[in-house]
């Protein structure tokens, strides 16, 4: 599965469009991690626990998006965008969307 955020896959040719595919997920960490990050946040610096949370969230959203693209019979997703928001305290929402296409060698 080719994924890119430009309008095509560089070096390949788009032969068929399958429409938009999306993947969204909301994740949270264990409450003790939340507490640890809260204490860390008072003193400043990077919150690695939450960096990992966003990393996991992004991976899951991408997985859901590519699963949807596979179902449509596409072999690539182009023009992928992310949108993030905080739904509730200590949780992270990430929405990935792109266009499922079929590409062939140029």
């Amino acid at each position: 599965m080719y994924i890119s955020n430009v309008e095509s896959i560089p070096g390949k040719r788009v032969v068929k469009h399958h429409g938009m595919v999306t993947g969204s997920t909301v994740r949270a960490r264990f409450f003790l991690v939340d507490f640890g990050q809260w204490v860390k946040g008072i003193f400043g610096g990077e919150l690695r626990g939450y960096s990992k949370l966003i990393s996991d969230t992004r991976q899951q959203a991408l997985d859901r998006m590519t699963a949807q693209a596979k179902e449509l019979g596409a072999n690539a997703v182009v023009n992928v965008r992310f949108s993030t928001s905080t739904v509730s305290l200590g949780s992270s929402e990430l929405y990935a969307y792109g266009t499922a296409v079929e590409v062939a060698d140029a």
Partner: peptide, 16 residues
């Protein structure tokens, strides 16, 4: 020869 999506993320707090 190859292209793929790459991502990076970071959370930085504002101290008290």
């Amino acid at each position: 020869t190859e292209s793929r999506l790459v991502c990076g993320e970071a959370v930085v707090s504002v101290e008290f």
